[in-house]
Design a protein around this nucleic acid. Structure first.
Lengths: 332, 332
DNA sequence: TTGTATGCGTTATCAT
DNA sequence: ATGATAACGCATACAA
């Protein structure tokens, strides 16, 4: 079942069939209708490989994400896929994990599949060591590279991020205005976004005239119970806070649970702020106040930008959107 | 940069280059090495379209999932993608939403992309009306169709499911043994898996010699607060339960929150059981007891089965795995 | 408006 | 062990 079968049955050449297929208007309405009805009748579908071979594209975008079971990333992947398909593009999904070597391999793999562009989802695609980002830059020499929550200033790389720095900075300012003095910032992994948040935290503290205690900025394990244990142990040692900011809602969940067992009142004794406005926020009691980074907007903006890039438009290298402070029960 | 460039530079024919590329051993070690080094030097990558055109496959599997931002589905997608790639296959992801018409279109779209197989993730791909599943059956005429948590008995359709019926049935039995009498079952949408769970609930109740009250089996809205409100309103009307089973952890979360506001003690006054063993379980206080449906095992089993199917092995149409009751704070 | 011929980069089937 | 060549199914430049 190919274009020849259709052409034969319709009594035209394959060129005409191809024209009908591609909406070329140099076809009389009569023949067009005939061809279309034959296609219908035969259930003809053009072969994407043959088409790709000639055009060297399959209208496919590669999505690289470290872990699609992470709520934030999963949401991003969802919105990306939906928006891409609305624009006539398919999505190749690759879950790379967090190892640099794997990220490199999977990016190379996507390029070898001749994707039209690559989207790197999440701040984990930006290494602390600058040279380790060369693989992204070299990919940008072949196709447009879109980054969500990562920033790399280079031609053919386009970044969409939320302003994590400002969000944390402003939150410190806000809680300091409540009279909070003993701040902690919990983060879960050493990503570029974590580093930016930490900077916002430090600068916000300084601007508020507060000193950051030795142990205030803390890398936490991946699971909620361990983080809770850490906070409890600190508390027993006499190290306590009246404001805990986090890089992830799940860390804030751990903080809420810690407060519960330690008998601390929220938000009177302790204010807690999550990050991402995920489903977890309304599962705790009290519900989590959090910083919403607008994953939907980030994703849709990324696709829109990409479409403009593919159309050859001149597009800014960086698009920044602001976060929202969502007030619920753990901070006001 | 194609196979001709390599052959020219290596001083061999394209046939030989192709043989090296595909690990054909009818090549002398000497020429093989030479060809390989030329490939390396030129940074040659075979063109996937040309290859696909000849072989009529790109080693790509289509994944259909209604909503990759749902925690269970996101996890499944993650494990599927990982396992597929380990087996040398790429993943085309399609998020269809819940509309039948969209599911049909996206499935057709995937087939037109010449995927080697299709995986339908989640019980939402099985319509209550049998005729509405014909689109799946017709897809199975073209490629193997794998279903996760959906069962359709048809050639070239292979299903991997967890035993939702037994899980709910056993849970009713278990809680009835604690002396619980007033059961409710909350579910979130009318999927095949919901229907099966409800059947397990009804049969379990009957086996325990308990009567199901009029309002016990209840379709709940998508968000936690609304569900909580419903339970609260019922409670105010004097309708209360001492055991609440659910089809989703998030419904159990709503139940926990309801119990909190209503002043009911968990689990003394009310036992609550979630479903999926998601991250939500350890966010509530007390933490959720739940039924773990082993999403990782489901996903990996599906891919393994698919690989055997693609190798032409004779594979059973249905693989069923059992759930685990996870004891935490809301039921014992 | 329509048809013919060619190229796209592989793999596979023959020869040699 | 290696080479020549025919598919594979489409798009397109050119001819008519």
């Amino acid at each position: 079942m190919n274009i020849y079968d259709v052409s034969k049955k319709a009594g035209v050449s394959i060129a005409t069939v191809s024209r009908v297929l591609n909406g070329n208007r140099n076809v009389s309405d009569k023949t067009k209708e005939r061809v279309l009805s034959v296609m219908e009748e035969l259930g003809y579908t053009p072969n994407v490989f043959a088409r790709g071979l000639g055009l060297n594209t399959m209208h496919t975008i590669g999505i690289l994400c470290s872990d699609s079971s992470d709520a934030f990333l999963a949401n991003a992947v969802y919105y990306l896929e939906q928006t891409l398909r609305k624009n006539g593009y398919e999505s190749f999904l690759c879950c790379t994990g967090y190892e640099l070597e794997n990220k490199k391999n999977y990016l190379r793999l996507l390029l070898s599949k001749r994707v039209d562009a690559v989207i790197l989802v999440g701040s984990h695609y930006l290494e602390a060591n600058k040279a380790d980002n060369d693989y992204i830059i070299s990919a940008a020499n072949e196709v447009p590279v879109m980054m969500i929550n990562g920033y790399l200033n280079h031609p053919n790389i386009y970044c969409t991020l939320c302003d994590d720095y400002q969000a944390v900075y402003d939150t410190v300012t806000r809680l300091a205005a409540h009279g909070r003095k003993h701040f902690a910032f919990l983060y879960r992994s050493d990503s570029s976004s974590s580093r930016i948040k930490i900077k916002g935290f430090r600068d916000g503290m300084e601007a508020a005239g507060l000193t950051i205690s030795e142990d205030a900025v803390r890398l936490c394990p991946n699971d909620i119970p361990s983080t809770q244990t850490i906070l409890t142990d600190l508390y027993k040692e006499g190290i306590s806070y009246d404001a805990i900011l986090t890089s992830e809602d799940c860390l804030a969940v751990a903080a809420v649970k810690f407060a519960g067992t330690a008998g601390l009142r929220i938000p009177e004794d302790l204010e807690i702020v999550g990050y991402n406005n995920s489903l977890l926020c309304i599962c705790t009691a009290p519900e989590l106040s959090t910083l919403d980074n607008h994953v939907e907007t980030l994703s849709i903006t990324t696709v829109n930008t990409l479409m403009r890039v593919l159309q050859g438009a001149d597009v800014p290298n960086k698009t920044m959107i602001s976060n929202d402070f969502i007030v619920r029960g753990t901070a006001y």
